[in-house]
């Protein structure tokens, strides 16, 4: 039980990260919906001549266009993993320290098994979330590689041609298409769990996770924020963080 009014407002998600998130969400939605339609076009009965319609061509165009945006957005995020603040840093996504694994165990204990009422303090993501996003990053890479490999025969552009070597690895285009499609379902599963867990954390912990991806700010109990146990390259001390010295100065939050 905490005393009230001891929250600190911390600027966690910089504007580029938020733009990345929402453009990515839009791309995945468009790619998923159009991808599903390409795999399972609805049965339309039409008396019109084929020359009068082009809706399936348009769906495919939307898929390819969203694919290009998806790639550009992903490349930007990789850049931002080096240029952004510590919560966006690339080191978070790789298992580099034992503290990260300790936090994984803490998160499983507190949030999945629910053996404790004490939330795992994490200002960025917690370690489980960072590793999950590393996984979705790999899925993204696979979708980009397989998608452009499948697109290459229809295009002379250099970007798809970079991926022509992917198809032989899978034996045939047909096989590659199957895996490209299956990963779409993996993104669907991810989305369900992702949205649920954001709501869960927002509901249970009150750190403002849900709104942070719009405004960028999170709210953290001062004792955690000042100890800076929250993730980020300096973090991962988790619950084992030493108690902050009384009257310790609040770390300055970056200007918006």
């Amino acid at each position: 039980m905490y005393a009230s009014h001891d929250y600190q407002r911390v600027y966690v998600w910089q504007q580029p990260v938020r733009w990345f998130h929402w453009i990515n969400a839009l791309c995945i939605t468009v790619l998923g919906v159009t991808g599903y339609l390409i795999a399972h076009p609805p049965a339309l009965l039409s008396g019109a001549e084929a020359s009068a319609g082009y809706w399936f061509g348009t769906v495919r165009f939307a898929h390819f266009l969203a694919g290009y945006v998806f790639v550009a957005n992903f490349l930007f995020r990789i850049y931002w993993a080096f240029a952004g603040n510590k919560y966006a840093n690339w080191r978070n996504f790789l298992p580099l320290t034992r503290a990260q694994f300790r936090q994984v165990w803490d998160v499983l204990r507190v949030d999945i098994l629910q053996l404790s009422n004490q939330p795992v303090p994490a200002l960025g993501h917690n370690a489980v979330a960072y590793f999950t996003y590393a996984g979705t990053g790999l899925l993204t890479l696979f979708q980009i590689g397989s998608g452009f490999a499948l697109y290459a025969p229809m295009s002379e552009a250099w970007l798809p041609q970079l991926f022509v070597w992917v198809t032989p690895l899978f034996g045939s285009e047909q096989n590659l298409r199957l895996f490209h499609y299956a990963v779409m379902w993996a993104f669907a599963v991810f989305t369900v769990i992702h949205v649920y867990l954001v709501v869960y954390h927002d509901y249970v912990e009150g750190h403002g996770v849900l709104s942070s991806i719009i405004g960028g700010w999170k709210f953290m109990e001062k004792r955690h924020a000042q100890a800076d146990p929250a993730t980020g390259i300096s973090g991962f001390r988790g619950r084992a963080a030493p108690a902050p010295a009384p009257g310790a100065k609040t770390p300055a939050t970056p200007a918006r």
């Binding site: 379902w185 669907a188 599963v189 369900v192 509901y203 249970v204």
Partner: peptide, 23 residues
């Protein structure tokens, strides 16, 4: 792929719902 995909999404949603109740 569709059967497996629907099953996985269904399992995720069911797991989330059960977790929400437990929470």
């Amino acid at each position: 792929a569709d059967r497996l995909g629907v099953a996985a999404v269904g399992a995720a949603a069911a797991g989330a719902a059960a977790h929400a109740v437990l929470t």
